[in-house]
Write a protein that binds this DNA or RNA. Structure first.
Length: 566
RNA sequence: UGGGAUGUAGCCAAGUUGGUAAGGCACCAGACUUUGACUCUGGCAUGCGUAGGUUCGAGUCCUGCCAUCCCAGCCA
């Protein structure tokens, strides 16, 4: 691990190392605290990498803790999904799956202690009144008329709140801090509210629930968390976090540190927007491969390693930033280049007849599975008189520097033969429908028999051996870098990339793909990385999702030429 | 007009006692190539939000200013 330490330390690592050296903590304990109210998305993986990653790196442990203090928003459906996604990412929480709701009694007792110290009171203000009393950003708030109830009265009222003697919203328990604080979080924050709603874990056992600001530091304390790592918007909450721990005299209190959350261009991360895309049918569900949810990325073919590397390369800091989707693409390419087997697939087939090749002959060529990993061996690929090539690999009137197939031109069929185009047929629209060619038997295996240079090498599939498949070409969900920052009067949904999904029905694949399994990943030679869809693909009816295309220098050259000519 | 956080290249991001701007992505130019992929080589901030100041010397210290983001849930 040490020799891999090429990058400089981030500020959290500095803090942890200092704490370890000074003996402030003996062992690192962190927590990953999702609220089970939705699916995890790639933004959450940054928190995962920080929470689990720091524990991993420094020989500590990270707890998975569901932050479930609001029964109206949470559901077990999400806890199962979240656990599955974290496991898929490869993070280890052992048997340390905790629920904030399991600490209900302890948190309640802490609240009682606060009341006894004269540091909390039961308030009768309505939500509207409370907002008025809170003041504004520039004006101090006013104290509630109920602020000075006696400790005895507060104790009694709080107990009656617990017993269900009041209706939802009728009373709250508030910390008594400072209504004039410039930090609004310190203006007597509500720490308990009445919600007569069944909770997904505790049922109807409780009708009062602690607020995040009160529950979180105490949950951390109960679990012996040493470093409570969270995102930057909680900086303003830290004084409150510390206040509770101090007033309740928690020994060796946990400390909170904040880092910037992850934003990525060409997508949206807000739960509200993601939900809208799903509910209004702009995408095909939470696991639509264009979504930034983990289930979607998984289905699209992204690997946990590539996502973790993406987070790693982006780094941890406090700067509000927008990461580049292109870097994520780079990371999967890097992973899959090393790990995905190569295979030939023709997405837009154009038939080529090799006129001097025997009618009934079938040859099998040995083709290596992955040039990056010779140990992955070879496979047999059948070849015959009629093959399919990519429509883009033939041009009647090619642009300069085009070195694929053209009339009179010669090209290498990868691992097979050189062929020379002798003619072609078109339909009434001028579309090429068939290409005629002859092969050079001496070029068997794609070798140059006489040392002649054939610059172009293209992929192909034997027509009679090809299997059909549906191929879904996915691209960025949005056509603009920042769908959250668009002109007034427009809607972010107007900027959905119309080409974010292109479905190809009649793709022709080499036969070895027949038994490809869901989530299996391949490089379609010269095209990109593809993954067997884990939902719709069935034997005999294969569906492949494009994770990402290969880098395409030719496309760049061609578009430059076009720009130059236009 | 209150408080907090943050400003280093197109995008991330190092830079810890002041000593002359790491690295990655992207991009550009070459080499190699039976994937126009991969890999390799070279290029890419007289400049660190800005204006002053201290100093032999400032991204680092001081002062002022500007910009962006967060906060007025009985959400997390």
């Amino acid at each position: 691990m040490e020799e891999m330490e090429r990058r400089s330390k981030n500020f959290i690592e500095e803090i942890i190392e200092k704490d370890l050296e000074s003996g402030r903590v003996k062992e690192i304990r962190t927590r990953f605290p999702p609220e089970p109210n939705g699916y995890l998305h790639i933004g959450h993986t940054k928190a995962m990498c920080v929470d689990f990653g720091m524990a991993e790196k420094y020989g500590g442990k990270c707890n998975l803790r569901f932050d479930d203090t609001n029964p109206t928003k949470e559901d077990v459906e999400y806890v199962d999904a979240i656990i599955e996604d974290i496991r898929w990412m490869g993070f280890d929480f052992g048997d340390r799956v905790y629920f904030g709701s399991d600490y209900s009694e302890q948190i309640y007792q802490y609240a009682v202690q606060l009341i006894k110290k004269g540091l909390a009171y039961v308030d009768d203000l309505s939500p509207e009144e409370m907002r008025e009393y809170r003041g504004t950003l520039t004006e101090p708030g006013r104290e509630s008329p109920y602020r000075n109830r006696s400790i005895e009265e507060n104790l009694e009222l709080f107990e009656r709140m617990r017993k269900g003697e009041f209706e939802s919203g009728e009373k709250t328990l508030r910390a008594k801090i400072d209504m004039a604080s410039p930090n609004l979080n310190m203006r007597d924050p509500v720490i308990y509210r009445i919600k007569k709603e069944p909770h997904h874990r505790t049922g109807t056992q409780w009708c009062i629930y602690p607020m995040y600001d009160f529950a979180h530091p105490l949950q951390d304390a109960i679990e012996g968390i040493t470093h409570s790592l969270c995102s930057i918007e909680y900086v303003d909450h830290r004084p409150l976090y510390d206040w509770f721990l101090e007033k309740l005299e928690i020994p060796n209190p946990p400390r909170q540190y904040e880092f910037a959350r992850l934003n990525i261009n060409y997508t949206v991360m807000s739960k509200r927007k993601l939900r809208e895309l799903v509910e209004k049918g702009y995408v095909d569900g939470w696991d639509d491969p264009r979504m930034p949810t983990l289930r979607a990325l998984r289905r699209r073919g992204f690997t946990p390693a590539s996502i973790r590397n993406f987070i790693e390369l982006n780094g941890i800091s406090k700067t509000a930033s927008v990461a580049d989707w292109g870097l994520l693409e780079h990371c999967v390419r890097e992973d899959l280049n090393k790990n995905a087997d190569r295979v030939m697939a023709v997405l837009k087939p154009l038939k080529v007849v090799i006129e001097n090749y025997p009618e009934d002959l079938v040859e099998e060529f040995d083709v290596e599975n992955n040039p990056e990993r010779p140990e992955k061996g070879t496979r047999k690929v059948p070849f015959s008189r009629e093959i399919y090539i990519e429509r883009d690999d033939f041009a009647i009137d090619p642009p300069p520097k085009y070195f694929r197939l053209k009339p009179g031109g010669e090209v290498r069929l990868k691992n097979a033969y050189f062929i020379k185009c002798t003619g072609y047929e078109t339909d009434e629209n001028g579309e090429v429908t068939l290409v005629r060619a002859v092969y050079d038997p001496a070029s068997r295996g794609g070798e140059s028999p006489d040392g002649r240079k054939v610059k172009g090498t293209i992929h192909w599939v034997s027509a009679k051996h090809a299997i059909d498949a549906e191929v879904r070409l996915y691209d960025k969900l949005f056509a603009v870098e920042n769908p959250d920052d668009i002109p007034d009067g427009s809607d972010y949904k107007d900027y959905i990339n119309p080409d974010s999904l292109i479905v190809i029905k009649g793709a022709k694949l080499e036969p070895c793909l027949k038994d490809a399994k869901p989530e299996e990943k391949f490089q379609f030679l010269r095209i990109g990385y593809f993954c067997v869809d884990n939902k719709d693909s069935k034997p005999g009816n294969l569906v492949f999702n494009r994770t990402v295309g290969l880098k395409d220098t030719w496309a760049k050259i061609a578009s430059k030429q076009q720009a130059g000519n236009g």
